[in-house]
Amino acid sequence: MNDLLRSTLDALVAAGQRVLGAPILFVGTAIAQWAAAWLVAAPVLVAVTAATEGFAPGTRPAAYERILAVVAELVLAEPSVAAVLLASLGVTAMTSAVLWTLLSGGVIARFWLAADDRPSLEAVGGLWLRRFPSVTVQSLWHFGLRAVVMLAATTAAANLPEVLFWPVIVITLLLCIVALDVVRAGAVRGHGQPFHPRTTWRAFAVALRTPTLALPAALLAAAGLTCSGATVLMALWTLGDPTWLWGARGLSAVTLALGLARVAFVTHHPSLAGLDREEAPSKEAASD
């Protein structure tokens, strides 16, 4: 057990170092997310401003102390505000899922090629483009399989004692996140059959069979999800306080760092060879 903990800690430290070793990737992505969030909020801001200026021309009502009633009144008076808000968040979710599917190969390539020295943009880009089809196809297979796994877990958990329901759901979700990392990293590294759904399935098996992989990666995933949840909680608790937004931005950066660390950790884990039936190709071969 001590060995497992020690190796886990070592691996997490190494993953953190890899994230710190890619400052442009980290900082650039964080700023891009902040900008995207600002863009997403812009239509909502405009809609609310328009709705409230309609109340009293030339003035804007304050978000006075009973903010719940104020927001509820706004939504009742102008249901389109709620529609704009939900649509913006929906677009955010869809865009985020699609973009990460498209970009994940590049992030993994960046971490894989950075094992020894700072990789060139051409090398990272080249590997990303070569593996792009297989990473995309494996991601799509994964999402289909994830739906099945989550449905099965939900059905099974519903028959368990109530106290076990959410733990089962959360653990299954974490397993899915790790399995997605495994199959994408494997695709970039050239492990497994690039377009076959069996590789996706094997990624689940690898994650399940390898505690030195699953445990740290799941912990990082759980920490990331907790930070995301904390961002929402912070927004709720500080509603109307203009100073808290930087707190939310900071939490989102931490969430991003944890996610990148998880990807870096999985990318370099030796168990990815389990996706193959044959000997795993060398790094040089993969980076050709």
């Binding site: 801001l45 401003t49 985020s96 949840g229 939310a248």
Partner: peptide, 22 residues
């Protein structure tokens, strides 16, 4: 009110992006 709702939307968007992130 508009600033408050706009900032809350930004936070929600950041949370969504974090949840669906890498």
């Amino acid at each position: 009110l508009s600033t408050t709702v706009g900032q809350a939307t930004q936070a929600a968007a950041l949370a969504v992006m974090g949840g669906l992130g890498p």
